Computed example of a mutant assay.
Amino acid sequence: MQIDLSGRTALVTGSTQGIGHAIATGLAGAGARVLVNGRSEQRVATAVGTVRSGSGGGEVTGAVGDLATEQGAAAVLAAAPAVDILVNNLGIFGSASALEIDDAEWRRYFDVNVLSAIRLIRAYLPGMKERGWGRVLNLASDSAVVIPAEMIHYGMTKTSLLAVSRGFAKDAAGTGVTVNSVIAGPTHTGGVEAFVRELVGDDKPWDEAQHEFMVTYRPQSLLQRLIEPEEIASLVVYLASPHASATTGGALRVDGGYIDSILP
């Protein structure tokens, strides 16, 4: 299958590292003009260079702004007034006892993980509908369905993204625009490495620590290893392409079989 996104502009939020960086690289490699987003000008500039290099020299630029704030969103919209492909990847996570999380922290998780996506959908979806083509992809998580006891606040935000995706897909019905969420399973990123170390200790070799984490905290995984970011990116690039024109309003899983369900 040949995926050609030439002539399309894509914005990937939170794409200076991890899954977002892999998605940006994949989209650029398929021919899209890609905007890399992050809060730091230096980190965005560095990521633009690595995405461009990793994609074989695709057109890659930066869009600096903290999307958890209205001001940051305005800065990103100024850098990218219109896009054809919106990938809402930005997110934060961490373990904590739900009974000890205060209101401010609940709001922070909602602002970063959910409201940032809603802001951009509101801004970009009307133009996509007018042009008769567009892709909105919201990065959810297995935690949206299998709520971890140590990350209820995080799981809540990812469940919210499933509802946001389904609702906006209905708003875009019949316009040529698709809206989907991608349920990513436990993925190997720098942040997840730190999270694994936090839970199982930092005195073990990485392979041993990863195995202990999967067995103890994610035993449902059929893959029995962390997913690589490029494996998530492959599904996102497909869903961003014309080949996925009949897929909308869905929650597509790339979770290593983590969610114990026969439904998508």
Rank of each mutant, 00 (worst) to 15 (best):
G31P: 11
V64H: 11
G56M: 02
T69C: 11
R33I: 03
I101G: 04
L27N: 10
G49Q: 13
S40K: 08
A30G: 07
D66W: 05
Q71P: 10
G65V: 03
P81K: 00
D102V: 05
R43E: 07
L137Q: 03
L86N: 00
T50Y: 04
A24H: 12
V83E: 03
G20Y: 02
L99D: 15
M128F: 13
T69H: 10
A96L: 08
A117C: 08
A47I: 01
N37A: 01
F93Q: 14
L35C: 04
L125Y: 09
A80H: 09
D102G: 11
A28S: 13
R131H: 13
R107C: 11
A45M: 05
R33P: 12
P126Y: 03
V136T: 09
S53D: 15
A30W: 03
V64Q: 08
G20D: 00
L115D: 05
V83P: 13
D111K: 05
A30R: 03
T46C: 11
S53G: 13
Q71Y: 06
Q42Y: 15
W133Y: 14
T50P: 13
N37L: 01
V136M: 04
R107I: 14
E70V: 08
R108C: 11
E105C: 06
A96Y: 13
D102H: 12
D84K: 00
K129M: 15
D84Y: 09
V112M: 07
Q71F: 08
A74F: 03
M128N: 07
N89G: 04
W133M: 06
G57L: 10
T69Y: 10
V48A: 06
A63V: 10
P81N: 00
G26F: 12
L27H: 05
